[in-house]
Design a protein around this nucleic acid. Sequence first.
DNA 1: TCGTGGCAACTTGCATACAAGCACTGATAT
DNA 2: ATATCAGTGCTTGTATGCAAGTTGCCACGA
Lengths: 243, 243
Amino acid sequence: MADDTRSEGPPPSARDRALDTLRRAVITLELKPGAPLSENELATRLAVSRTPVRESLLLLREEGLVEVYPQVGSFVSLVDPERVGQAQFIREAIECTSLAQAEPPFSPEHVADLRTALLAQRDADAAGDHDRFFALDEEFHRALLALAGRESAWRTVNAAKAHLDRARRLSLIDTRPMGELIEQHTRVVDAIEAGDPAAAVDALRSHLRAVFDDVERIRAATPEYFTDGRPQRPVRRTVTSLK
Amino acid sequence: MADDTRSEGPPPSARDRALDTLRRAVITLELKPGAPLSENELATRLAVSRTPVRESLLLLREEGLVEVYPQVGSFVSLVDPERVGQAQFIREAIECTSLAQAEPPFSPEHVADLRTALLAQRDADAAGDHDRFFALDEEFHRALLALAGRESAWRTVNAAKAHLDRARRLSLIDTRPMGELIEQHTRVVDAIEAGDPAAAVDALRSHLRAVFDDVERIRAATPEYFTDGRPQRPVRRTVTSLK
DNA sequence: TCGTGGCAACTTGCATACAAGCACTGATAT
DNA sequence: ATATCAGTGCTTGTATGCAAGTTGCCACGA
């Protein structure tokens, strides 16, 4: 088990690499909401043919991150407050239900995972490392699901919260302190360690709603990245450079 | 509103048609779990090229309905009890949370929709029309979400419950009476009409769990369509005919 | 009879050519 | 100056050819 290279699975295909690259570019706002995309342009940049790029865009479209207008063009989706709200509801339903169904005593390893993610998150915030902060935030919520043996539900939560994540990333442009969020996470873990699931659910719920309320503030600050309810107007423009 | 042809949106592309056809074939068990697929074969049957078929398989793979082994073949996914349980949890979390957050008085139209679906479902059961029965079952649960203004969450629920639906369809092979399910639905609507959301949630939860428990019975009856935990063995065979 | 090696046919992944359609530009007429 | 119309270049959708790899059959040898 030591000399295992862990090459599990086949080598990533050109599509896998293109998909990872593009998805990451979209959620990190490297590709900004509303930015026009072009299969040919992206294929050139990624040094592959249109096929893997096209298939990637098809999957990203299914995730709600890209919109494709036939014979017109493809665009990074604008952040849709409606979808953000939907993601918020789904997340709250799944995470809170999971936590509510978890029964003490809790696995010490899982609780330790939560504490570890929490401390690392504090460091990342202090260092101003936004990417790491978000990765740890995901790790925290994932560990929360694992506490009740519902880690497999993470995939569904993740798929639903893409728009929510982008909105949250927008808020980091102001390099705003994340202390409040860490504080809220801490309250959740404290309640868990105290063996009080009900209190943990309450703390989690108010945390998730605080995150959601923040979206409106972000929207007011950067309205150009949000939909105004009207259909996204297809406008052909020069493609923004990817890296 | 009468002469409106409702042609909203562009005409369906070859990919759209292929995807609809294939997805329907998989969830109705016309294409049985474990059945080998072939892009070329399907392309010929559907009278299109490999491209739309390939893209459809890619999307179905993302939905968990198809498994693709590069250079080996594509197969209809076996029903995975693990995924069925996951779907059950997600469904219960979302539907019950939605119903719990709904506040009386309820919209008379929505309640009427529930009653209508219920009666129609009784007819479909009596007529032995399985497809219609399932369509109405979806309509019922969708209306339940609409009651709390969470109809948009239906998409997420639907995406998660593909394996669950196939398992339920397997049970219909015995032409088993669906009276119990209708009975359970009725209890939910009764509680709603009585303006008692808490009771409705309890009735809904026990209904969903009854559906889930049924899966084990189905698995015992038709184990060849379920995974035994081991990876699905790729075996090349003659492609089952589609329609 | 049983084991083994190689060939043939199939699979999906990727690249590319062609088709159909929309948007923008610019010239032209009013 | 303004409105209209045709052209051009881009877009995505589809079809198809080629490449790389795997499976299973079948002949061959022990």
